[in-house]
Design a protein around this nucleic acid. Structure first.
Lengths: 193, 193
DNA sequence: GTCTATAGACGGATAGAC
DNA sequence: GTCTATCCGTCTATAGAC
């Protein structure tokens, strides 16, 4: 008789997730470039080499943190392209967008504060919506219409930027998150309405 | 008879400004941390050591780029503190704020894209409004009132963030700058009004 | 005011034992 | 899956000649 589920000696199967957690903390505290793999390993109580078993490079850690969130934005864009360009669709785009940023607030805050580093990583990825700016432009196009006048495009941009900023800025810790999300959505709706 | 104005051999007295120009270009292209003094010197046709004659460190180059603009924000805050907290004052705060960001758009864009690096530099400067976040909070306090409810504080924050983003985002190069500035102001006024 | 040369430190990444 | 040890590159900053 065997116990195939659990190998003996409980080999810390969650190390990968612990690396992600610590890396995100340090990237947020001191920035991506100023955080070395040595620091991440030290705070985790392992060695640099251990990190390379779970991630093939420093950039790979970042991608493991950001890919899911970026994919959700891409899905939103794809979905919206198949919808009629009416008021109903616009308000659903904003609702879903705010929810995505709100759910991944820590990661989006990291991306925001390290935009220069993110842009450097995005270089050379010509395919799809690899670049942050492409995603923003796509959403603006869907919210304002592809050939909208400058004023409408600027307002749609401002709507997205202020909504996400509201979701990811560090407020007093005892503010009501649900209220923040509602206010973010209200502001965005006002600007595209 | 002498010619006291121009020393012989025209010793490139503008090198300091040329360094600032090239540094800002490179910081914007690849980010502050990924730009080395070697690269700056190379693009300028001088050596690293020459840079150290004009600036005492890499950070010092950044401060030479940003200090004036930050001081203008500080002056705006000081001025506003002595004004009555009415509609007239709020709208003048926004007008002056937008003008400051608009005038220094390249530098503000650099600070925005390298916020992590900026924050790292701001560590340990306890005095005055050394930190970016302090300036934002001060302006929000002046626009919304010191003990305003959450919604008003969030809206004031969104006003400042979207106005500055509008001024410093890279739009199609043939857009009318004056129109952009007007739209930025309109959005901000709407959110604090 | 600009140069050459170098110090001194730290970074990411890999090899190979256990 | 984690370790030790190390390679090799790059960086900021300085010393000192011209």
């Amino acid at each position: 008789m065997q116990h195939p589920q659990h190998p003996v000696a409980a080999p810390r199967t969650d190390t990968r997730m612990r690396v992600q957690k610590v890396a995100l903390e340090l990237f947020a505290e001191q920035g991506y470039e100023k955080t070395s793999l040595r620091e991440i390993a030290e705070r985790l109580g392992v060695t640099k080499a251990a990190l390379y078993y779970h991630f093939k490079s420093k950039e790979d850690i970042v991608h493991s943190l950001t890919d899911d969130h970026n994919a959700r934005i891409d899905e939103l864009i794809e979905w919206a392209k198949g919808q009629p360009a009416d008021e109903r669709t616009r308000s659903e785009i904003l609702d879903r967008y705010v929810r995505i940023v709100f759910d991944g607030a820590e990661v989006f805050r990291f991306m925001e504060q390290n935009r220069a580093a993110m842009q450097a990583m995005e270089q050379g990825k010509g395919d799809r919506l690899a670049r942050f700016r492409d995603r923003l432009d796509a959403l603006v196009g869907l919210l304002a219409g592809p050939d909208a006048p400058l004023r409408e495009r600027v307002r749609a941009t401002a709507a997205l930027i202020s909504a996400s900023a509201t979701c990811m800025i560090g407020w007093d810790s005892h503010e009501d998150p649900a209220e923040l999300r509602a206010i973010a959505l209200e502001i965005a709706a006002e600007l595209v309405g």
